[in-house]
Design a protein around this nucleic acid. Sequence first.
DNA 1: TGCCTCGGTATCATTCGGTAACCACTGTGA
DNA 2: TCACAGTGGTTACCGAATGATACCGAGGCA
Lengths: 113, 113
Amino acid sequence: MQDVCRTRAVLDIVGDKWALLVVRMLKDGPLRFTELKRAIDGISQRMLTVTLRDLERDGILTRTVRNVMPPHVSYELTPTGRTLREAAAPLLEWSLENLPHIEAARAAYDSRG
Amino acid sequence: MQDVCRTRAVLDIVGDKWALLVVRMLKDGPLRFTELKRAIDGISQRMLTVTLRDLERDGILTRTVRNVMPPHVSYELTPTGRTLREAAAPLLEWSLENLPHIEAARAAYDSRG
DNA sequence: TGCCTCGGTATCATTCGGTAACCACTGTGA
DNA sequence: TCACAGTGGTTACCGAATGATACCGAGGCA
């Protein structure tokens, strides 16, 4: 199966721990750096910066800087980014629905030793 | 948004670089360790072991050992695992469709410096 | 004069993933 | 008899990715 390596290449983008959460947060329109940081609980400043850079590089979102003080930088999904969000939505829903299930399975596994 | 941390918890499972590929490979029925290793190009033996353990722990797949020699160990999706595969399918399709687009965006970004 | 916000860097510690070697056991071939 | 391969791992080690924390400049506000 040749697709494996190509899928791998894209999962490197999408599976990098924070990318999908950023994409999801941007679904209703652009947000500023600090808004994203507040919305995505637990992300460090550095990782948000890195994630946003990577997503911009891959054409998933755009970065818009207004030259004012204090700085005003906003991030918005591109059309490609919006298709990604749609493709990722079922997985994100699944994660919310199945978390209790998974935690139970994990606890059972751990208690078995 | 409280869901973020819960989504995060599941993306830890799903986003760990190889998990979705393993789940995808198992869609047509159980496979043995070595079959998976051959099918998923580039995965190391250790990472396949680790990934399979984690997915078993989370109730995504089952591990079945037949006590024969040579060892015969097969892995199969649980019902939860099958729902995960369905939820992940759109994202995997997206990745195949959009890889050229992303590579182009990346090249353009890099050439801009 | 401090102190805050915003959007980041710089620096360091910790964790993750990959490589290579090794294991037990059996079957196969010379 | 001896070597070697396949199977499903485990272990030690190392570099890369990630995370926590501190700091920055410019302006606003007290």
